[in-house]
Design a protein around this nucleic acid. Structure first.
Lengths: 215, 215, 215, 215
DNA sequence: GATGAATGAGGTTTCATTCAT
DNA sequence: GATGAATGAAACCTCATTCAT
């Protein structure tokens, strides 16, 4: 009566007895950790996370043998979720420029108020490695589309865009509570600086040329 | 009654001497703290600072009742020094735009490699309050000059410029060793977005309008 | 009432089958525990044992309600095995003294490299109780043979020999890798001190008389 | 009136103000640690030591940055105290053999009931290194005296004596409470085996020759 | 019976701050 | 005023044992 009503889902190959409970715990831990990390940054007490997820310390450390590992998992999950959404949004429009700006919009909106996520940009831990590569690949895709359409300023690299994203995301943190939404102005300014309307060449990476000629 | 019996206050210079010693200690502490904070960020052990300044913990805490207060003092001193230099640089040119770009250049170059300084942008401690105000005043001055000369994009506020500065300074930290100088490209892009060449209105602070029209 | 309703006990072999499985598990646990305890001493993580025996923690604890109990079982098994071999060796020679020295040789050789076995001499846990009794009985047998043949020094008790064995076994551990075989010298020295050639009386148990007169 | 009464001890060069208190704490810590380690072995909770010495955890770790360091200090102190006493005892007699036996007597009596001290023989930590060297030097001295007087069995090395000492000290632990003083019998036996009365050669280090010929 | 996830007290160590000298 | 030892609350992590499935 309880499980096998109609279209029985192909019974998982047994041995998953406790796994369900464990998976629920693991999910609870990640959930709680995500909240706590977002609220208070990477430096929180692990016990706070254990308390909020309703599990003991041992359980937490069974699933994540190290605080860093937990953090990495949480961040990766958030990165992935965000990238997935970004892909969908990008696929929903024909306009390359709209795809690019939409990406930035969404990236920043997503990171607003997530302290750990922002801190992770600075962190050099192994956590961000994988995520970084995924993000880079996607940004490169967006860039190529804009370049092909002649919309992007000459010489703008993927690294530039990655950096711009990281840069703005950290601003969000600072303005988060006091000036919500101000980052949109900065984003607009930067994007305008990225448009092919600007014809002056960018300084070579590593060069020390003067920054801008406004005449 | 105990030491100075025979009238004619014998040693006011003695107290002065003490004062000088204390002042020297204070300076040593700030000096050492500046180095340590710059090298290792805000999270260093206070004892490291005491050790490097050659004073005891008690002395340190007599001058600065809290680690945060010491940090604030250090940061403020650095802000002040930097702002002074910035003022001089700004006064040395007639061109308002050059003054503005020069400011950014110098601000960012100054912050490269100073971990505490960059972290302070995110920190909500009392440390940054004072500094923020000074910086703001100066940026506002630069902005006004540009606006008066018709060089700055319509609607750009001081807050925008402050945020841009903070934003880029954090990029410097992230790219510091691996991609030195890349921040100059980002700066150039942003400054181009700030020029009065861009005529589209910026989104209202707090609004959610679309970010950019590239047509 | 639940399983065997229709009289004629239907599946005693079934329960036997279960028993066999359990017995196999028990054997696997002991086997693995013996290896791990020998390698790493008594302080190993129980999970290491569970992992190596291929059973879950619950199974392990069903068979051995306590880590100490498992340890006791393992040690007893090893003692038994060793004692059996010792018995055979002792029965293979007519010479009582050779039987005694052979026993020591074999005891020590057997314990070289088994950390838990050596540690157990110091440990006051319930583990060593049983083993101790068996060993004692056998040593007493050897002693009696030597005494009857007039080969053993006057007054040497079984307890003395037990203690000598324990003592030397710990030496083996200490010298194990660096000076293999040095214990044989010590054994020889001790055995010579045990021979009936030495006629001075031993100090009473508990007495504080001077230890030796070498003249 | 308080300090400079008569024969003033040459005033310590100032700067020792707090040092006295700290030294008292350090002593208290070592004292407490010695007791606790002796009672319960090396594996005690550091907090127990802190509690018993009446200092906070921080104080303890200021003086001994690591539990191992504390243990090493305690052991070394005990070794030193013991060796000093042993030197004096050895100097008090003309008889080389009495000096040797006295040394063993005292060494073992001193270690009876000190769990950490005995455990340290097995431990390979850096703690015992220094102590070991001192002990070895002293034992070598005793040995030489006996050899020169023709009292010691041919071929007995310092290493043999060191090992014998360690071996017996561990026996003490095992018999400590139940059979106090039994180790004296074992010691006597071993010493008799060491006397020059025994003329059979010892097995070469590393050899596998038979252990003893009692005929 | 078997499984292995969950438990949580305890282990060592750090560090901002206070306080006796 | 200066000194630096003392403080003690956390922090991270381990592991013998229990218990739901």
């Amino acid at each position: 009566m309880t499980s096998a009503d109609q279209s029985t889902p192909p019974r998982p190959p047994a041995r998953r007895a406790r796994r369900a409970d464990a998976e629920r715990n693991r999910a609870a831990i990640i959930e709680a950790a995500a909240v706590v990390f977002a609220e208070q940054g990477c430096a929180v007490d692990v016990r706070e996370i254990a308390r909020r997820s309703g599990v003991g310390m041992g359980t937490l450390y069974r699933h994540f043998p190290t605080k860093d590992e937990l953090l990495a998992t949480v961040l990766e999950r958030e990165f992935t979720a965000w990238l997935t959404a970004a892909h969908q949004a990008a696929a929903a429009t024909e306009d390359p420029w709209e795809a690019l700006t939409g990406f930035f919009e969404q990236a920043l909106a997503h990171q607003a108020g997530n302290r750990a996520l922002v801190e992770s940009h600075t962190a050099t831990g192994a956590a961000s490695r994988v995520c970084a590569r995924h993000r880079e690949a996607f940004i490169d895709e967006l860039r190529t589309r804009c370049v092909d359409a002649g919309l992007l300023r000459e010489g703008v690299t993927t690294a530039d865009l990655v950096l711009l994203s990281a840069s703005l995301s950290q601003v969000i943190q600072a303005t988060g509570d006091s000036h919500p939404g101000q980052w949109r102005r900065l984003l607009r300014i930067s994007l305008d600086g990225l448009s092919s309307r600007n014809t002056e060449p960018l300084p070579e990476p590593g060069s020390r040329a003067e920054s801008s000629a406004n005449g």
